[in-house]
Design a protein around this nucleic acid. Sequence first.
DNA 1: ATTACTATTTAACGAGTAG
DNA 2: TCTACTCGTTAAATAGTAA
Lengths: 216, 216
Amino acid sequence: MVEAKYTPLLLLLLRKGAHAKPVKFSSTSIADELGISQQSASRWLIELERAGIIARTGAGLSLLPKGVEGLRSLHVILSSAFVPRGVVRLRGTVFAGLMEGRYYLSQPHYRKQFKSKLGFTPYAGTLNLRLSDVALRAPLDLSSGALISGFQTSKRLFGDIIAYRAVINERVRGALIVPARTHYGPDVIELIAKENLRKALRLKDGDEVRVSIELS
Amino acid sequence: MVEAKYTPLLLLLLRKGAHAKPVKFSSTSIADELGISQQSASRWLIELERAGIIARTGAGLSLLPKGVEGLRSLHVILSSAFVPRGVVRLRGTVFAGLMEGRYYLSQPHYRKQFKSKLGFTPYAGTLNLRLSDVALRAPLDLSSGALISGFQTSKRLFGDIIAYRAVINERVRGALIVPARTHYGPDVIELIAKENLRKALRLKDGDEVRVSIELS
DNA sequence: ATTACTATTTAACGAGTAG
DNA sequence: TCTACTCGTTAAATAGTAA
């Protein structure tokens, strides 16, 4: 592994995309971002350059393969501890949404992707649940579901959605959808399925619903 | 974030499972593993304990939530750079397998899971491809597919399988399956589908096949 | 503006060792 | 065995500044 003290700098470069293409980044601004002196930033860059971890050209700063490799192995170690496996079981109670979901689900750009990535075209409406125990959804936010990419119309922006295949009340296959930008989710989740979940499961507001999501 | 110099120690504790339950770990052995002196290890532990990142009890060393949170955010940053998205396109040539795949696919325990996790029960045979460019499969190994859990019979052990939904020759939906234990894959992949791929696509040994996998 | 040198200060390290 | 103290030494950080 790369010497640990450099990791904040390497992470910064990674976030700026220096693994993909050179980025302009002065020792002063690096110093500001990391809370160290300009002199230290300069020295770190020199040391990393000598070690073949970064390169500096006229185009800017690049993370070299050796540097990327070091970060990648760090990622692998962390993933083995944090990427959850198995089944997440959530419980929540039905409540009436704001019909926002219906509007989203009627967008063809989303509908096409639901079909191709989840294997079904959803009924144009979501079932809203308020979770009994928000903490239980944590593994979900660490995991990776199907990415439904967003789009833009002249009127508004439709963001990325993450969909997790789910089974509702042990009977109906569907998916749990969350906006991709929410990092740690709220106590509300939205479910979709091929059919109208309210009807299919004879649900009314306040009913409890069980959702199980298989993570992989 | 937790001060960077401690990350090797925190990673070590994470790998030992100190986030789940206390682990016995002396300053001397920590020092050995990290290549620092016993004195430094001792001091680091004291500092981390004061910062509320670890706890030391009679039962051993534990990573406290604050410490886990620091590592988790590190993981999130790395994941956003390393977890690949989009479509991976592979090409390979058909070759005759050893009928090993057929044996595997005939196991009910696997078959049930294929149905529930991929949405189809596969034809009992795999299509073997030798990849033209092994490097192209790298993003796959970093990504996460559907986990098909293994099982054990009196005769032998059937390991976990990872399945990635795939489209073969832009026509047939199926999946690419790999043993979970192989960390970085070889130049051979196996494809399954509801139908017999050889027949459906009129393939013979040596034919080139295109596979596209959607990562999410 | 920028980088990076030298000198000085500050912090980290590890040897020795007690409890 | 273990942990953790003191203390001399070494390394890293910053100030000042030149280019």
